[in-house]
Amino acid sequence: MIKIKLMILDSDEIYLERFTSVLNTKYQDKIEVHCFSNVQYANLFLVDNKVDVFLCAENINFDKKVLMPNCGFAYFCDKKSINQVDGAKAIGKYQKIELIYSQILDLFSENSSYKVSEIEAKGLASDKFVYLFMSAAGGTGSSTLAAASSMRLAKKGEKILYINLELLGDCKEFFVSEGHGNLSDLIYAIKSNNANIALKIESLIKNTKVGVDFLECCSSPLDIRDIKDKDINILIDTLLKLTSYTKIIIDADFSLQDISLSLFNVASSIILVSDGEKIANDKTIKLLETFGIIEKQNKTPLLQKVKIAYNKFSSKNAQQIVFDDVKSIGGTPRFDGAVPMQIAEQIANMAFLDNI
């Protein structure tokens, strides 16, 4: 396993002692930390030692030219709101250790010469699944069911990662957490042939109080449109091999572009969401018919992966879809007067989600 060699230069010796103690308590197996309060001693250490990440207090005059080309560098600042100092990245000193650690990982992933193949893989767990949520009709609440399923699985002790790949997706409707970066940064890293995609992912993942980890949505819809099938394959393959997640929930738009076709292939289960109304059901049936065509063209089983879930279902007007052997897992009625996060939390208590 790779152990990141971290070096910190800061004149505040009390802070360095406390910071090192906390860092070693939580990440001793992942980071080897060396702290200095004197520039001269720091330079002497660099002569004979390779450093992966170097953090320097913003008030210290340090010549970055002495660092090796593959060493990640950032200024250590008193204010966490500062993102850059003199063109270099900045990390706030006074924030949660988990947030500082994720930014150290980010620096390492962007600058290190280590390759993914050199990172110890944890292997593909036998109970690891990828659940793909999508809808043929807008407004049926597929994102709500995807978020609710994530919450329910987390309550059952599963290690869950939620990813929203919708063109106009917004994770903040369901999950709130501190952290930096988003899916746009990860897409850029993949397209740039970043050698440490696994570490980049780990640095961007955010944790929530409900037990669901997630990747923040893209900054711009254009970034989603720029994803190709090979990018999705790299992302999912890395997640399956190099993380401890047993369940990955993907919320995505339906299209016949490369991204959707790749998602169909990697998904263990495809959950199509309808509200049971005629318009949504008709569109869902067309989508199922399209799956049948794709199945024959590519000789890849799709329909056997598909399950139908209902959201905002009205017993007066709504009807269930009947299509070959495609199963319905049940559904939920409409919730009025509540925000999306509250609705997802209520749906997460419903047993029908165990059938996804």
Rank of each mutant, 00 (worst) to 15 (best):
D10I: 09
E13H: 05
I14S: 12
L16I: 00
E17P: 00
S21L: 06
Y27G: 13
Y27Q: 04
Q28S: 15
K30G: 00
C35A: 14
C35I: 08
Q40L: 07
L44K: 12
F45Q: 04
N49P: 00
K50R: 12
V51F: 02
L55G: 07
C56G: 04
N59T: 12
I60Y: 10
N61W: 01
F62P: 06
D63I: 04
K64D: 08
A74N: 10
D78C: 04
K80Q: 09
I82M: 06
V85L: 06
V85S: 04
D86G: 03
E98P: 01
L99A: 08
Y101I: 06
L105G: 12
L107Q: 11
N111V: 02
K115S: 14
S117A: 10
S117Y: 02
I119F: 13
A121T: 15
A121D: 12
A121V: 05
G123I: 11
L132C: 06
L132M: 08
A136S: 15
G138M: 07
T144L: 09
A147I: 11
A148W: 04
R152L: 05
R152I: 04
R152H: 11
A154E: 11
K156H: 12
L161W: 11
Y162P: 02
I163Y: 10
L167H: 12
L168S: 10
C171E: 09
K172C: 02
E173N: 15
F174H: 10
V176E: 12
H180E: 14
G181S: 03
N182V: 08
N182A: 09
S184H: 09
A189K: 03
I190F: 07
A195S: 15
I205H: 07
I205L: 05
T208Q: 01
T208V: 10
T208E: 01
K209M: 08
V210S: 12
V210M: 07
D213W: 02
F214E: 07
S219L: 01
S220K: 10
P221R: 09
L222C: 01
L222Q: 13
I224K: 01
D226Q: 11
K230C: 06
D231L: 02
L235N: 13
D237I: 00
D237V: 01
L239F: 09
L239K: 02
L242K: 13
S244G: 05
I248M: 03
S255Y: 00
S255P: 05
L256I: 13
D258S: 15
D258F: 03
I259K: 14
I259F: 03
L261W: 01
S262P: 04
N265V: 15
A267T: 08
A267H: 06
I270P: 01
I271P: 02
I271Q: 04
L272E: 08
S274Y: 08
K286R: 13
G292I: 00
G292D: 00
I294E: 01
I294P: 00
Q297P: 00
K299D: 13
P301A: 02
V306Y: 08
K307N: 12
N311R: 03
K312F: 08
N317R: 05
N317T: 15
D325Y: 09
V326Q: 04
G330M: 04
R334Q: 14
D336I: 10
D336F: 11
A338W: 03
V339C: 03
I343W: 02
N349Q: 15
A351G: 03
D354G: 11
D354F: 06
I356S: 07
